[in-house]
Amino acid sequence: MTKILNVRNLEKTFSSGSKKITVLHDISFDIEAGETFSIVGPSGSGKTTLLGLCAGLDQADSGSIDLCGTQLNSLTEDERAILRNKNIGFVFQDFQLLPTLTALENVAVPLELQGAKNASKVGKELLEKVGLGDRFHHYPSQLSGGEQQRVAVARAFSNTPSILFADEPTGNLDAETGEKVIDLLFNLNKESGTTLVIVTHDLELAQRTQRILRLKGGKIIENPIDTL
């Protein structure tokens, strides 16, 4: 199996006044291509910080991250942005849709930025797959929370990412709606063969992935284990 993400001895600290707070301490793990993987832990355990580092949204103080065969440490901010556009999909808790764009435009924009000529066609196909074939021209304010997150899921797959990071994807949804969104996420993931990394405090959701990494106080308290 090919490793798509290799994390070694990761450290991250933040300054708070005159104090330095270590958010992540000596984090090491691997994720195989095509694997489903979850990072769990209580609030403040460093889950979202770890996801941001793995996705190249921020830089660690020490340690190394190899993503899609590229060492993130050696890249400039612009080079990391290019890597993200080509290889990574994101689903966030707060949807992060552009309010002035329609559902279709929100999904198609990442493709258009890459110069794809079939952006609208792909966007329509993805929205149909997530059950929003009748919502192409609706703006986010005209959609429910569950519908907005479905648009976000469709957008995340628009650039056929090698790896998709989902940060508390059901955090702003009720239980029933959240379950439907997660079913869509896993179904699309299986169909596309994308590696899926989910940050969550929901153990029931985490147990749907092949392996779980548990964090507490910025440290791994249990090595990744099979859930099967």
Rank of each mutant, 00 (worst) to 15 (best):
L97A: 08
P99A: 04
P99D: 10
T100G: 07
L101P: 09
T102R: 03
A103R: 10
L104P: 00
E105S: 12
V109D: 08
V109F: 13
E112W: 03
L113A: 10
L113I: 15
L113S: 10
L113K: 14
A116E: 12
K117I: 14
N118I: 04
S120W: 14
S120G: 11
K124M: 13
K124H: 04
L126I: 06
L126E: 10
L127V: 06
L127Y: 02
L127R: 12
E128T: 11
E128Q: 15
V130K: 00
V130P: 01
G131V: 05
G133Q: 15
Y139G: 08
Y139S: 09
Q142M: 11
L143C: 05
S144M: 06
E147D: 00
E147F: 00
Q149E: 03
Q149Y: 09
R150D: 11
V153D: 01
A154N: 06
R155M: 11
A156H: 06
N159S: 14
P161H: 00
L164W: 02
L164K: 08
L164N: 02
F165R: 05
A166W: 06
D167W: 13
T170N: 12
T170E: 08
G171C: 08
L173A: 07
E176W: 07
T177A: 10
G178D: 08
G178C: 12
K180Y: 02
K180Q: 15
V181F: 12
V181L: 09
I182C: 13
I182E: 03
D183V: 07
F186R: 08
N187Q: 13
L188Y: 00
K190Y: 08
E191M: 07
G193L: 08
T194A: 02
V197D: 03
